[in-house]
């Protein structure tokens, strides 16, 4: 019955161990379900708060997170830059198309200038030059003289 003794001792030891583990579990874990893995109660508190988890992030992990954020930021920046560049390029294309269209319109528009009228408007005294007046009829000169007014 040595085997039986051993078995009994083993059983007792196991029981003691189990009781001890249970006590440890009750003491250390807030796990209300007493989840165990391969006979060992999971020590980590799966219901710990996010704040606690964040506190436990190692320096290396923080570095990785920071690098990830930087990379993500660069990617976001690239996306934003590409979007803006696309907007600029599309605006440029539209502007070019508009200019070409307007140039086509100008090219197909017949423009005439009344150079004499423009010159008279730009240089109002020019119409009273002797050279210009000599080309006018006496009736026109009379009208101009009377138009000048009070001295006539």
């Amino acid at each position: 019955m040595q085997l039986g003794r051993i078995s009994l001792h083993t059983t007792k030891a196991l029981q003691a161990n189990t009781q001890q583990n249970t006590a440890n579990t009750n003491k250390l874990s807030t796990n209300p379900f007493g989840v165990s893995f391969k006979g060992n109660v999971i020590q980590a508190d799966v219901f710990q708060s996010a704040k606690k988890a964040a506190e436990k992030v190692s320096v290396m992990q923080r570095g990785k997170l920071f690098a990830s954020a930087v990379v993500g930021g660069i990617n976001s920046f690239n996306e934003a830059f590409k979007t803006r560049m696309n907007n600029i390029v599309s605006f440029g294309k539209k502007f070019t198309a508009d200019v070409i269209e307007k140039l086509d319109r100008i090219g197909s528009t017949e423009i005439s200038f009344d150079m004499s009228g423009i010159a008279n408007r730009l240089f109002p005294d020019r119409q009273y030059s002797v050279k210009n007046l000599s080309t006018k009829s006496v009736d026109e000169l009379k009208a101009m003289w009377q138009g000048i007014g009070q001295l006539a």
């Binding site: 009273y128 003289w145 007014g149 001295l151 006539a152």
Partner: peptide, 11 residues
């Protein structure tokens, strides 16, 4: 005005 009339007279 005088200068204009002078030019008209000259013309």
């Amino acid at each position: 005005n005088n200068a204009k009339i002078k030019n008209i007279i000259q013309a």
